[in-house]
Amino acid sequence: MKEQRDTTPVLDIDGLDVRLPEDRAGRPILDGIGLRVRAGESVGLVGESGSGKSVACRSVLGLLPAGARTSGQVRVGGRDVLAMNRTELAALRARQVAMVYQDPRASVNPLRRVGDFLTEGLRASGTPAGAATARALELLDAVGIRDPRGALRRRPHEFSGGMLQRVVIAAALAAEPALIVADEPTTALDVTTQAEIVALLGRLRAERGTGLLFVTHDLELAASVCDRVYVMYAGRIVETRGTDELFDRPRHPYTAGLLACTPSIAAGAPSPRPIPGRPVSLAESPPGCAFVARCAHAVPRCSEEKPVLTRHGDGLAACHRAAEGITL
């Protein structure tokens, strides 16, 4: 299903399966994931805990759960990450893909100065010390750190969580990556700080044409950041389309359920309507649609046959009844 575009996508995940040995899981962690991010595009990957969204985003860096078997392809700039050797992976992580994690404190060595943290990658790739420092100052300025010169000398504990996340983003930008993968980058932050970080990611993407894969459990947040959203459930992508269309006309009952259960701050918004039941665990392996037990629209076919992703409207949905235009 290749689309006619002159640019190759910065990220192209195609039919990615990730399985644990039989005794550790009843179903694949990831089951035929397809996902694409183009240059300058902001793409959301939304799901609840256990949906596989974190495993999917880590696979972009070639990080996979221990003992997992994989098939399919994860192409970054046209090259398959899953086929890379150690050196190629190191180069990928150093230059092409940057990752921003949930907890900035976990991704920065607490004992080293921020200046060293920012320049080590540049120095390792041969930039002279003076130039590396100048670049670090420029990056800190770009992510909105006042007094960049002073910041270089400080250690991580002297920064608030939000400021440290800016530093992590500055480090992510240092190598001018083609793709930034942000795994719940604002979940540990306060709401005002979250707004600043999200605005920063958006601005940097627009200015630099970097692709952004934004992983979150928060649909409202994804809507405010992303052009296009993928929704994951139980290791599969159940729906993907442009943000506005996804919100206005979801075709998958799970997407509709997520929208209905997310509390909205808008005046007069209806009360959140819960999705009954709970997500399927890794031990369970339903033969049909994984959402069937929680779905109000299920028909017998749903529990027998796994629905495949097919085109509905401007996007894809994996639901047997998506074509019927049922009101969700």
């Binding site: 958006g202 809507a223 943000t243 919100f247």
Partner: peptide, 9 residues
């Protein structure tokens, strides 16, 4: 964050 309030960029 909510839909319909796009952030910069």
């Amino acid at each position: 964050p909510h839909r319909g309030r796009p952030l910069p960029g």
